Amino acid sequence: MRRTGARRLLGYGFLLGLLAAGWTLARAGTAVPALLVPDPARVAESLITKVVADPAALPLTFARALAGTVLGLALGTVLAIVSHLVPILEPLTRVSGMIMRCVPVLALSPLIATFFGYGGPAAVATATVMSFFPSFALVGAALWRIPPALLDVIRVTGGGRGTILRRVSLPIALPELVLAAKLTSCVGVLAALTAEFLTANDGLGALLARSQGLLDTPTVWAILLTSLAGSLLAYEVMDLAERKTRARLSLHKN
């Protein structure tokens, strides 16, 4: 695991080096205007003075993304368990989830704002809607992979649905739930940022909308780089959690 982590860090460092080199070359020439590719020093200044220092921007967006992602994962897991316990509901929940997953965020935003309001509630709801399907699909697939013979053994020994859920279903589904969290870690930030851009007066999305209207390209770049860094950090944290979860469960199996 340590070697894998070191290789990933080297890969990120190499990618950042390429980005910095391309950025420097673009600014060194005259073909790319500063309105499109701003000076790195101005982006760093905007990052410190307008993004990090704004209490109504960075903390709000990441808190909303986290809340929406957690709610989405919980909703997807509950729907997967209900679909497994009541199979007649599985086609309905699966089709509904696929429809919500395929509809673009821009198309969902007006509908979400109508039901949940504008600003923060819309951002959390959007992140929830965009995050629930991976947990629903992965946890549901794990539950349906449980050997029927194992369930029969538990029933013969007097165990009911609660025992099956607690001792078999949830331990089998846990690694898939962590995997779903890893896959949705980036989606939550993007969903919250998009909802704020369209409906909110605070958060990184609202700051992005104002900066774009003022042609403040350094701040736009600073916001995009911040959201990218936050998404990558969340992904790496959940990737580590997934590997540790699978390793611990494999040790328990042995």
Rank of each mutant, 00 (worst) to 15 (best):
4 T>C: 01
5 G>F: 06
9 L>Q: 01
12 Y>R: 02
13 G>E: 01
14 F>T: 00
15 L>I: 01
15 L>S: 05
16 L>C: 12
17 G>Y: 02
19 L>E: 08
21 A>F: 03
21 A>I: 00
22 G>Q: 09
24 T>G: 11
25 L>Y: 00
29 G>P: 12
31 A>G: 10
31 A>E: 11
33 P>C: 04
34 A>M: 00
34 A>S: 03
36 L>D: 07
40 P>T: 05
41 A>C: 05
43 V>R: 12
47 L>T: 06
47 L>P: 01
50 K>Q: 11
56 A>K: 15
62 F>S: 00
62 F>C: 01
67 A>F: 02
67 A>Y: 02
74 A>M: 09
80 A>Y: 14
80 A>N: 10
80 A>S: 11
82 V>D: 00
82 V>C: 06
82 V>S: 01
85 L>Y: 04
87 P>M: 06
89 L>P: 05
91 P>S: 03
91 P>I: 06
92 L>G: 06
95 V>P: 02
96 S>L: 15
98 M>T: 08
98 M>N: 13
102 C>W: 11
102 C>T: 15
104 P>N: 00
107 A>G: 14
107 A>R: 01
108 L>D: 07
109 S>N: 07
110 P>L: 01
113 A>R: 04
114 T>W: 10
115 F>W: 15
117 G>C: 13
118 Y>M: 12
121 P>L: 01
121 P>F: 04
122 A>T: 05
123 A>M: 13
125 A>Q: 08
125 A>M: 10
126 T>W: 02
127 A>P: 07
129 V>C: 08
129 V>H: 05
133 F>K: 00
133 F>D: 02
135 S>F: 11
138 L>F: 05
139 V>F: 03
143 L>T: 12
144 W>Y: 12
146 I>L: 14
147 P>E: 02
149 A>W: 09
151 L>Q: 10
151 L>N: 08
152 D>M: 09
154 I>D: 10
154 I>S: 08
156 V>F: 05
161 R>M: 13
165 L>Y: 07
166 R>P: 11
166 R>K: 13
167 R>G: 10
169 S>L: 09
169 S>R: 06
170 L>D: 09
172 I>L: 15
173 A>M: 04
175 P>H: 04
175 P>Q: 09
178 V>G: 02
179 L>M: 12
180 A>H: 03
180 A>E: 07
181 A>N: 05
182 K>W: 04
183 L>V: 04
184 T>G: 04
184 T>M: 08
189 V>S: 01
191 A>H: 04
195 A>L: 14
195 A>K: 07
196 E>S: 10
196 E>T: 09
201 N>E: 14
201 N>I: 09
202 D>Q: 14
202 D>C: 08
203 G>R: 09
206 A>K: 13
210 R>V: 13
210 R>C: 06
212 Q>R: 15
221 W>M: 03
222 A>Y: 12
223 I>T: 05
225 L>V: 07
226 T>L: 01
228 L>F: 01
228 L>P: 00
228 L>M: 03
229 A>H: 03
230 G>W: 03
232 L>R: 12
239 D>S: 12
240 L>A: 14
241 A>E: 09
243 R>Y: 07
244 K>T: 07
244 K>W: 04
245 T>C: 15
245 T>E: 14
246 R>H: 02
246 R>L: 14
248 R>M: 10
253 K>N: 13
254 N>E: 10
254 N>V: 12
